[in-house]
Each structure stands twice: as C-alpha cells, then as structure tokens.
C-alpha cells in the first residue's frame, strides 16, 4: 500500500503527458473500423427494420408501401397467433433451460472431482460435439431419428417393449422432441461454463470447506455457487437469447408443425416475412421480440449479476 501511495505522489515524467494525448486522427483511425462495421451490420439493418415496421411493406406489392405508423405494432400486439408463438417459445425456455442448467451443473461437478484424468479429458472433448453440430443438421437428424416407422428412437423404444411413438406427427410429442434436442445440444455448453466457474474456486477454500463438512450441498451452496453466479448469468442471458432466436433446428425438423405446435416466435417471423412476404408486419414482430430480449437480459443482470 505504501509503495502504491508513493507511486501516485511521484510527478509524472514530462514526456509521458505528451504520450497520453491521443490525436484525433489516431482516435478515429482506431475506432472508426469498429463503428462503421457495427453501423453497417447492426444499426443500419435495425433502422431499416424499424422503418419497414411502420409501413405496409410487402415484397409482392412494392409499388405501394404507404406509411402506416404503429398499425403493424397494434396488429402484432393484438394477434393471438403472435402471443401463442411467444407462449410456445417461453414454454420451451422454461422447460429446457432448467434441465440444461441442472444437468450441466451435475456434469460439471462430476468432472470437477479429482481423479480419472484421462476419462475426464475424453468427456470434456465429447461435450463439444453437440455444440459443434450445425443446428439445421440437428433438425434433419431429428426428422430421421424420430420417424415413426423407420426412426432409431422408436427402434430403441421397441427393445424395451414400448410401442412406436408418433413423434413428429403429434403436437405434444413434436414439442417434446424439440425440447429433447435443445437439451441435448446445449447442456454441454452449460456444463463447460460451470466447469470453468468451478475451477475459479480457490483450492484452499474448497479444501477447508470439505474438512469442515461432509455435506456436498453445503460446499456447493456456500463455497462453489458464489463463483458460479457470473457463469450462470451468462448462461441465462445467452440461452434465453438463443431460445428466442431458435429457428434452424425446429424449421428443419418440424417446420413449426404439426399445426402450430412447434411454431416458435422466430419461425412465425420467418413465415410472415419470407413466405407471406409481409416484411412490415414481420419487422414489427422482430422489433417487439428485440425489446423483450433486452428487457429480459436487463432483468437477469439486475437480479443475478448484482449479487456478486
């Protein structure tokens, strides 16, 4: 502390004050590539989406795109189809995310235990495979694996005497199938984040805690969990945003069907924007989704991250 105080009191060398002055050119030179890129790929499309959301903007009627103000927003907010899709998206989130967190934490705790180094290395590597698989490929695999007659899932169920299940053609089962795939693909992500969090717990504190109590729950709750909160917040924010954007896997596996049973919000926006070509309405839906995502992210940070 004394050394630090001395450093602060020591007058800065003359040349260092010159070095601290950054010319405007340098400043712009370093910042502008990032700002321009962000403006081009993030802000400009967003601005365009907001602009189209206030017009009757249909790709098949581009001769006439009148300004309609907030009419598209009013249509979206009073449309039961939009809220049904939003409800399904949050149902997926509320079912899949706790499963991913619980299973991910369990895997992380197992891998955190000492011993069996080689097997744990193999396990860590294996965890990357689901995450590295392209979403669309996961959906296509699902379409084949969950096929009523020829799918491997029903074959396996047959071995234990369970009759073939109509996975893709039944609304409830189709939803269960997308929950299954989401959990399969993203539990490893949670596991790896939690494992990284566990490695930040100081060894001596954890060791001391284990000497104090035999209860693994006490160690987890009072020693390990505080170190996992930043990772948990990241998982919550990323997985929520990912689930709200979930498209490829569901689109390739069920296309939102049967009926509307797996039509998540992103599939609805794609359907309105690119199959019915109503870009105005789809943009309004997307802007509302963006607002919901931002609000949720802020809530997560407010309630979880602040406690650290």
């Amino acid at each position: 502390m004394l050394q630090k105080t001395q450093d602060l009191e020591r007058p800065a060398p003359k040349e260092s004050s010159n070095a601290g002055t950054v010319s405007l050119g340098t400043f712009l030179g370093f910042l502008s590539p990032a700002v321009v890129t962000l403006a081009a790929i993030g802000i400009a499309p967003l601005a365009f989406a907001i602009w189209t959301s206030m017009r009757d903007y249909n790709l098949t009627r581009l001769q006439r795109t009148p300004f309609v103000g907030l009419e598209n927003y009013a249509t979206v907010l009073t449309d039961s189809v939009f809220w049904d899709a939003m409800g399904r998206t949050f149902t997926l989130l509320l079912i899949a995310l706790p499963m991913q967190i619980a299973a991910g934490l369990g895997i992380a705790l197992i891998l955190h235990r000492p011993g069996l180094t080689f097997l744990k290395t193999i396990a860590r590597l294996s965890l990357v495979i689901p995450m590295a698989t392209t979403y669309a490929v996961v959906g296509l695999l699902g379409q084949i694996m969950f096929n009523l007659k020829y799918g491997v899932v029903n074959q396996l169920l047959g071995f234990i005497g369970i009759a073939p299940v109509n996975w893709i053609g039944d609304p409830t089962n189709a939803f269960a199938a997308i929950v299954f795939w989401d959990v399969w693909q993203w539990t490893p992500f949670c596991a790896l984040v939690f494992l990284a969090g566990l490695t930040t717990v100081p060894g001596e504190i954890e060791e001391a805690a284990r000497l104090e109590t035999k209860s693994w729950w006490t160690v987890l709750r009072y020693v390990q969990l505080p170190f996992l909160v930043p990772g948990l917040t990241a998982v919550l924010i990323l997985r929520t945003a990912d689930t709200l954007k979930q498209f490829d896997m569901v689109f390739t596996m069920t296309r939102g069907g049967p009926g509307s049973s797996t039509e998540l919000i992103s599939l609805l926006i794609q359907r309105i924007g690119f199959r019915a070509f109503d870009q105005g309405l789809a943009s309004a839906q997307a802007v509302i989704l963006l607002v919901i995502t931002i609000v949720l992210s802020r809530l997560y940070i407010h309630f979880f991250y602040r406690e650290i």
Binding site: V81, G257, P258, G259, S260, I272, A276
Partner: peptide, 16 residues
C-alpha cells in the same frame, strides 16, 4: 402466398 399460409395453419388444425 399469404392465403396459403392461413390455409396451411388452420387446415392442419382441423385435421388434428
């Protein structure tokens, strides 16, 4: 293209 989306949605709901 707009109408077929409506038919697809409600036609499937009927069948289910």
């Amino acid at each position: 293209p707009e109408i077929t989306e409506i038919v697809q949605e409600w036609g499937t709901k009927m069948m289910l």
